[in-house]
Amino acid sequence: MRLLVGLFFVFFTSCYQVERNCTDFQEGTFSSSITIGDSTYRSVFSRTKELQIETFNNHIDSTIVRWINDCEVVFRTINPKNMQERKDIHLKILTTTDSTYTFEYSFVGENVKQTGIAKRIE
């Protein structure tokens, strides 16, 4: 009986696929929300296939966008002002809906990842 229940569970969970229409979010204007500990950080950004301009805490950053595949991208700050800004950021889109995507990101080469949600605003 346990074997039958186990096979039933594996059969139905292996058929479930997370929706990822990543190309829908490669360009546009978005707002994002990231929670780290007790703090929530929000930003607004516009992205083309080659460039992203982000406003966070009244500070504007511009980054070069390099898509690895349809769902993964690396950002490189154009004019870094310190060592932290010199580090590239790797972002992976995990799931999508019609107007939002959930993502994880980290500095390239680091294992600590943060997650967030971005919503299309234009």
Rank of each mutant, 00 (worst) to 15 (best):
H59A: 14
S46F: 01
V10P: 02
R2P: 05
N69D: 15
E85A: 03
N82C: 10
S62T: 14
I78P: 05
D61S: 12
D61K: 11
R86T: 14
P80Y: 04
I68A: 02
T55N: 14
V112R: 13
N21Q: 12
E122W: 01
V74L: 12
F30G: 00
K92W: 02
Q84R: 12
T97C: 07
A118H: 01
R120P: 02
F8W: 05
E122G: 05
E54Q: 11
V73S: 08
F75V: 10
G28L: 06
S33I: 00
R66Y: 12
N111S: 12
F9P: 08
G109H: 04
A118W: 00
P80W: 11
T95C: 06
Y41L: 11
I93H: 02
R20Q: 14
W67P: 03
G6D: 09
I68S: 02
L4T: 15
G116M: 02
H90C: 10
M1N: 08
T63A: 09
E50K: 11
F9I: 13
T63S: 15
E72G: 06
L4D: 15
S31L: 01
Q84C: 06
T77L: 04
H59G: 06
T29S: 10
S32Q: 12
E54C: 08
E122I: 03
Y16N: 08
V108C: 05
H90K: 07
G109D: 04
N21W: 06
Q84H: 03
L3R: 09
S33F: 04
M1H: 09
E104W: 02
Q84A: 13
N21H: 13
M83F: 11
K119H: 07
T100N: 08
Q17Y: 13
H59S: 15
T40I: 07
K113V: 04
L4K: 13
Y41I: 15
N111Q: 09
Y41Q: 07
Y105A: 04
K81L: 12
Y16L: 14
I93L: 04
V10T: 07
R47Q: 15
R66I: 10
S99I: 10
F103Y: 07
T97S: 14
V18Q: 11
I36W: 01
F9A: 13
P80G: 05
N58I: 09
M83K: 15
R120N: 02
K49E: 11
E19T: 15
M83H: 14
T96M: 00
I78N: 02
I60D: 12
D88R: 01
V5C: 05
K113F: 03
A118N: 00
L94I: 13
Y41D: 04
D98H: 10
T13D: 01
L3E: 13
I36M: 04
D88H: 12
N58D: 15
